[in-house]
């Protein structure tokens, strides 16, 4: 079998206002590559914080290669990121993705309650002083506050509300975020999960989580 074609970095838009696809993005896409798409065929996919669009574009291409027709929605708080994602999608001739400008999952609740089969999140996970969180430049793409958990912890309580009964969450973390504790918090909401990919990158110990409803 030929290797699956994900998004091409050369066709991906990024700039000084939009985070460049990096080790964390590649690890997340590699984790998606290991997913068994045919157990439950996702029909509705949401990526929160789409940035350059590299990940949602890769997901859309994977779905297509597996013969799965799905509707995808990508959101970001940054209009520059959404414009970049739009350009990345056009460059890859991907048309099944709608874009929404919003803050984390707030635009999707209650409307998407228990409807999302595949939820993808590459959060701002880098530990920073909490003051960094109020910046509105590209720092917003990575600044995660104390332990890199401030944005992640706003996101986690909504996962149980948005995942469909067959839904999966794929999410980037690093060891600084304490992924074991994140999995514990999700378990308290009836969401089971595990680390599906470990990778050492520049000064980061990446841990990609895959979670599902029990």
């Amino acid at each position: 079998m030929k290797p699956a074609a994900v998004a091409d970095v050369r066709l991906t838009t990024y700039n000084k206002r939009v985070y460049e696809p990096s080790d964390d993005s590649f690890a997340l896409v590699d984790a998606l590559l290991t997913h068994d798409w045919h157990i439950k065929r996702p029909r509705l996919c949401v990526e929160v914080g789409c940035g350059s669009g590299y990940v949602i574009c890769s997901a859309a291409r994977l779905l297509e290669q597996h013969g799965i027709r799905a509707h995808c929605i990508a959101s970001d708080i940054s209009s520059a990121a959404l414009q970049a994602t739009q350009e990345t999608l056009v460059a890859h001739s991907v048309a099944c993705v709608d874009l929404v400008q919003g803050d984390l999952l707030s635009p999707f609740l209650p409307g998407f309650e228990h409807k999302v089969d595949l939820l993808i999140f590459n959060p701002p996970y880098v530990p920073t002083p909490d003051e960094e969180l109020s910046r509105t430049d590209i720092a917003r793409a990575w600044a995660g506050g104390n332990r890199g958990r401030v944005i992640i912890d706003r996101f986690l309580p909504q996962v149980k509300d948005i995942l469909s009964p067959e839904g999966f969450l794929y999410m980037v973390t690093v060891m600084d975020n304490n992924p074991a504790e994140i999995l514990q918090l999700l378990a308290e909401d009836g969401i089971e999960g595990k680390v599906v990919l470990e990778r050492a990158a520049d000064e980061e110990a990446l841990r990609i989580l895959c979670c599902w409803r029990i």
Partner: peptide
């Protein structure tokens, strides 16, 4: 705008 709804509050 350009097909993207701005749902920021």
């Amino acid at each position: 705008h350009k097909g993207v709804p701005n749902l920021l509050l």
